[in-house]
Design a protein around this nucleic acid. Structure first.
Lengths: 155, 155
DNA sequence: GCATAATACTTGCTTTGTTAAGCAAAAATA
DNA sequence: TATTTTTGCTTAACAAAGCAAGTATTATGC
């Protein structure tokens, strides 16, 4: 599987990709997301819609800017995703009475059902990961990632 | 900004999204990638091509499955990216003599040049981040992310 | 040896990401 | 009050991601 027939040693002094924070974050996410994607493949929602549902459940009815920020989606993407979710009956939108530019999004029964249907399995995945990775370490990693967001930075 | 007019408390016992590892990893990555994207915007390669170049430099000539895995790209995406990079002379492909299904990808001089041209700036970004986030913490985070990849898991 | 499966991509199609432009409703300013 | 600016979203356009199906080559089981 490994390959070193025409191997040449790195010549530009860049960090090993394991030690590149953007790449490490990406790889870690792929690892963690694997089982989640598997779980969602048996449902009617994809990763993004799942995030939107969770944000809505967590924060209650809220406007699109807020959802976009919390679910890590850009507004144009969110607009399309919400249109689809509205058509599927997962959420509803209503204009804000006080500010008619704003539309308030609310999760509907169908959306809540999807969350509930997978909540147990999702929780199981977390428990499993914490067990293998270590409870304390898991929390520490989350803390460190939260701290990182206060900073900026790169590679 | 915050909104609680029609607020309903979470009803399915899912983790708060702040404490969801996939979402935290996504948010952290967005934060870290900002300056990198800025750096790459002044070059002929995007984020994906940059990753491919780094993986090739680090691991030498290798097949597409290996590259896809290391650079966190799906094979269909990689196929297209490599076609473009080949046309630009950044890499070359040759059929594996022993297994003609497989094609071996190698970085070319033009590709190495791009890496070298940005290595200094990339290193600067890392130094800057380490300074603000803390040297020790930075290394610890990388360790923890590396460990995570050995595990599996989810949320 | 031959049919079957598995592997390593490749191609096609839909959804999402990304950037820029557009539009209507507030807010701020004159 | 009239004009400009800002805000909150939508639309458009194109690259990239993600999923499914297709092709060629190698490995496996009878």
């Amino acid at each position: 599987m490994s390959n070193d027939d025409t191997f040449k040693a790195p010549s530009s002094n860049l960090r090993r990709t394991n030690r590149s924070l953007p790449i490490a974050l990406l790889r870690a996410r792929e690892t963690v997301m694997g089982p989640v994607r598997e779980m969602l493949s048996g449902s009617s929602v994809n990763e993004q819609k799942w995030r939107v549902l969770r944000v809505l459940e967590e924060g209650g009815a809220q406007d699109q800017n807020t959802i976009a920020q919390r679910a890590c989606l850009l507004l144009p993407s969110l607009t399309r995703i919400l249109s689809a979710m509205e058509a599927e009956g997962l959420i509803s939108r209503r204009a804000d009475a006080a500010d008619r530019r704003r539309s308030i999004v609310q999760i509907e029964a169908t959306g809540l059902t999807i969350l509930k249907d997978h909540a147990k399995e999702a929780a199981g995945l977390v428990i499993d990961l914490r067990k293998r990775y270590g409870d304390e370490k898991f929390e520490q990693l989350l803390d460190m990632l939260e701290d990182l967001q206060q900073v900026d930075g790169a590679d």
